[in-house]
Design a binder for these strands. Structure first.
Length: 344
DNA sequence: AAACCGGGGAT
DNA sequence: ATCCCAGGTTT
């Protein structure tokens, strides 16, 4: 963009944002803690999905102190179904760091705020600009898409080094007096107008300054390579209920996929069998029938699940829990689907 | 740089 | 069936 038009670009974007912005729960505050929570929830997650989670979260954890002292299981229950559960643990770890190292005040500079667990370059810039109105870049997928079109940048956004190109661009473009509205305006534009497919250029407040609109092909941007190979895993899931109406539950390891979440026992059918499971847990099965058979698709792998209900005799080993106890445990969506079926 | 980490909505 | 979303951490 030619330098003389930067001022007009800023004003058009900021004015459009302030006139057209959606009414979202986290836009009723500039509390850095609440902005922080919203930004973490919004990582890789759509606005409509986040809204009910954010509202419930703020009812239970209205202050940074209350989040810091919350039991992890109670915290994860609030994140259940949202995905990327390490976000919740990192958020709490970050809150505890703020209490210990910064007197409970979220830092207002990139150097310190970036030290907090779970706060990377994007989230740092988002909190600094939205809560403190600091002119800091906050480059996410929306911003890269919008600016790739405005500036006609053809670098492959799948490559990590490309993000630096956009961070430098934002540093030059950002409105130093209205950093909050400018950064949110870029993201709002990406969400409402400058969409991945079929961008609504005729409604765009900055199309006058958009190189791709005037000289290029907005639909062809951004350039993004990369393709992923999907892995497939097949599991037998066993819902074992004993004579007292208690169910055998397992907690997943503290690292890796779905860390610390709870599940009904899962058997990797390429590693073991249901018969081995029965011996290992010395479970006597009185009756059994099939529950659900379905697949659950993650971003990088697919679970093929066959679930079974088994009426058992319980023995000492394992966690046999009541329905009420199970309801309080954080579980991944596939287990929630099975649990709903069991309750029918 | 690449792999890992959830889930759902849009196309 | 495919893409991708208000990304960060680990290897």
């Amino acid at each position: 963009m030619n330098y003389p038009y930067v001022t007009e670009f800023r004003q058009s974007l900021v004015d459009w944002f302030n006139a057209e912005k959606r009414d979202l729960p986290w836009r009723h505050t500039t509390d850095p803690y609440k902005i922080w929570v919203s930004e973490v929830m919004l990582q890789q997650t759509r606005v409509d999905t986040v809204i009910p989670y954010y509202n419930r979260f703020m009812e239970s954890f209205p202050t940074l102190d209350l989040l810091a002292e919350a039991p992890q299981e109670y915290l994860l229950k609030h994140w259940e179904g949202l995905g990327y559960y390490s976000r919740a643990r990192n958020l709490q770890a970050g809150a505890r760091e703020v209490l210990e190292n910064y007197g409970g005040v979220v830092p207002d500079n990139r150097h310190e705020i970036s030290k907090l667990k779970g706060v990377g370059p994007y989230t740092a810039g988002a909190i600094l600009s939205i809560a403190y109105n600091k002119p800091e870049h906050a480059v996410d997928g929306n911003v890269m898409r919008v600016l790739s079109r405005v500036l006609d940048i053809h670098d492959d956004i799948a490559m990590p080094k490309t993000k630096k190109v956009f961070e430098v661009a934002v540093e030059k473009l950002i409105d130093p007096e209205h950093a909050s509205s400018f950064n949110q305006g870029l993201m709002e534009l990406g969400a409402l107008i400058c969409t991945p497919t079929s961008p609504k250029c005729l409604l765009c407040p900055v199309r006058e300054y958009c190189t791709a609109f005037n000289e290029g092909e907005p639909d062809k941007l951004p350039v993004k390579s990369k393709k992923i190979k999907m892995k497939h895993l097949t599991y037998d899931v066993l819902v074992c209920e004993d004579e007292n109406g208690r169910f055998l539950m397992q907690q997943r390891p503290e690292k890796g996929l779905l860390a610390n979440l709870w599940q009904f026992p899962m058997i990797d059918t390429s590693q073991s069998t249901v018969e081995n499971f029965k011996k290992e847990f010395t479970v006597n099965v009185h009756a059994e029938h099939e529950l659900l058979t379905f697949k659950h698709v993650f971003s990088h792998l697919t679970w093929h699940i066959n679930s079974y209900y088994m009426k058992c005799e319980s023995f000492a080993q394992g966690d046999w829990l009541s329905r009420e106890q199970i309801e309080r445990l954080p579980m991944p969506v596939p287990m929630l689907k099975i649990w709903e079926e069991v309750k029918k």
